[in-house]
């Protein structure tokens, strides 16, 4: 296997892994861990939406399924989190396959597919809020049991590194996928489904594979969320906030690129934090939801001026620099 294309991933991950050695404040570590969790959720969205062109507005359905499965398997069934995690991811994949089966077989595309995913997420949210098994409106509390065997770390750096290792794995997976036959067929389906079919691409099977993989990855983000906060309710797990962040991060970072979700998540959350702090200092009190205003403005700016995201902008600038220096 040719290793050269994977070098940038190794460098970026190494750089991120070394960050906590310099930055030791709890706020920064919490921010970094959270950014990694959002990156994971966004990376899942990116495979289906970025590479496959199937825009989902309801990735909360996978995030929430992963998060609830992780919590309930521990609380209700006493399963160790290290075993619960792959089970929760498998469940996320199964939900992905089921939703894909229902919507792609019905030939839903574009905004129709987006609306259906949004509807699924809402159905799951309302059900989780109503059902006793999931803790209803009170939510689920995972008992505090610090120790690596319970996937709860006293040292915040460890939980960051764990999230980072998941991000690293999905970066490698995404790059490997984009260079494979499956990746080429997925992009072909995004660009022109008719033409792809003419070239022997089973468009339905390709989309089903993509949404299954996407579901598993985004579910893993939910698992890490559960282990980080040890508390869940329906609005946290299945709320629209995560659907929005999972799709905003890749769009802002660079849709259909390996690093897009990572760059987007860091930019998005970073700006959100900065704004929240700035407004709190300015007005003397926190204004809830002010970061969402920033997200909205960012989205508008991206759609208008950087349709290929931050990475696309950077590439454009680099290209011009190179062009200026022959």
């Amino acid at each position: 296997m040719n290793r050269a294309p994977y070098m940038p991933i190794a460098l970026v991950v190494l750089g991120l892994a070394l960050l906590p050695l310099g930055l030791t404040s709890n706020t920064v570590l919490n921010f970094l861990s959270f950014a990694m969790i959002i990156t994971l959720a966004a990376q899942g969205w990116n495979i289906l939406g970025g590479y496959g062109g199937q825009f989902s507005f309801g990735h909360a359905v996978f995030f929430g399924t992963g998060a609830y499965a992780m919590a309930l398997l521990q609380v209700r069934f006493g399963i160790n989190p290290w075993l619960a995690l792959p089970l929760a991811m498998a469940l996320g994949a199964a939900v992905g396959f089921a939703i894909g089966h229902l919507s792609f077989r019905a030939r839903l595309r574009g905004s129709y597919f987006a609306l259906v995913t949004l509807a699924f997420a809402e159905v799951f949210r309302i059900s989780a809020n109503a059902w006793g098994f999931t803790g209803g409106a009170a939510g689920v509390l995972v008992p505090l049991r610090i120790g690596p065997e319970h996937m709860q770390f006293a040292d915040k750096r460890l939980s960051y590194w764990m999230a980072l290792s998941f991000v690293a794995a999905t970066l490698v997976l995404t790059l490997a996928m984009s260079r494979s036959r499956f990746g080429a067929q997925l992009v072909a389906v995004r660009e022109n489904e008719e033409a792809a079919r003419a070239l022997g691409v089973d468009a339905l099977a390709v989309k089903l594979k993509a949404i299954t993989l996407s579901g598993a990855i985004t579910a893993s983000a939910g698992c890490l969320y559960t282990q980080k906060f040890l508390y869940l309710d329906a609005n946290l797990a299945y709320g629209p906030w995560i659907s929005v962040e999972a799709l905003l991060a890749p769009i802002i970072g660079g849709v259909g690129t390996v690093f897009g979700p990572l760059v987007g998540a860091v930019v998005l959350l970073g700006l959100g934090e900065v704004t929240k702090t700035a407004f709190a200092n300015l007005t003397g009190g926190a204004i809830p939801g002010v970061d969402l205003v920033v997200f909205g403005v960012l989205l508008i700016l991206c759609v208008a001026y950087a349709p290929r995201g931050v990475l696309g902008l950077a590439q454009g600038w680099l290209g011009r620099l190179k062009g200026a220096r022959p």
Partner: peptide, 25 residues
């Protein structure tokens, strides 16, 4: 294999990547 009367390129991809989608078969 067929071609389309109204050409249907994968516009976002390079020429090589376009042809490679066929070759991956």
């Amino acid at each position: 294999a067929r071609t389309f009367q109204i050409v249907q390129p994968f516009a976002g991809l390079s020429v090589r990547e376009n042809i490679a989608v066929g070759a991956f078969l």
